[in-house]
Amino acid sequence: MIVDCHTHWADCFQSRDGLDPSRWLADEARHGVTHALVLPYLGLLDDRLLRQENDDLAAVCAASAGRMIPFCTVNPFRKVEAVAEFRRAIEVLKMRGLKIHPWLQGVSINSDAMDELCEMAGHWKMPVLFHDGTPCYSLPSQAAMLARRHPKTTMVLGHCGLFEHWREAIAAMRGAENLWGCLCGPHLAALSEIVRRCDCQRLLWGSDFGFSFADVAGYRLGLLQSLRLNDSDYERITAENPKRLLGPVFSN
């Protein structure tokens, strides 16, 4: 079992395949990826589209025989609508977490609405996954401050700081016990340091597949394998930790 914890369902797939995830899944399966945590795309760019995209993403994942786990998005800039849509996504669409891209969505991680959404996520035991590594709204330290304010909510750095803020991501994860990191973006030496210095029980792996048709999963899985982790750490990062993060939602 390999769970790709950072993927997207972008409009290019929907234009080509409608709501059928077969070809998307086949692209991932070629690299041995069995399951994926699937994040929105268009709704991060334009909040007029996010409600429809949450519907579509739920439908796509429902057609995946349990291999695709959907996360919704909402725009915290519009607090009332965001709270209502998050509730709908969880209660009606049965989505499994919340993705926020503060940089693209134009709202700081540390905002009043984020606090309320994080309390809701903690109540439902839904993880909140952030884009991170980009100032001025998406720094790992900003996520750490939010995580400290909401200790019952599990939060995930979606990129572990990318190329430029990975040292900050290490500090952030060491400074907030409910903050996890997805190994998706930093270079090989940075990934090695993150694994060495952070709690391996809170690390995930992701490819960022699905923005386009580019075949990115092989590259990023190759990077992870280049770390030459022992079997138990590899198993933790690719399978056991995602299961603990999301609970019993995976098919065999």
């Binding site: 270079h187 090989l188 030496a189 940075a190 092989g218 590259y219 190759g222 990077l223 280049s226």
Partner: peptide
């Protein structure tokens, strides 16, 4: 390559 931040053989192969 930016070695050793990256592995040159892996990057070249990809």
């Amino acid at each position: 390559s930016s070695a050793p931040r990256n592995c040159p053989a892996f990057e070249l192969r990809m």
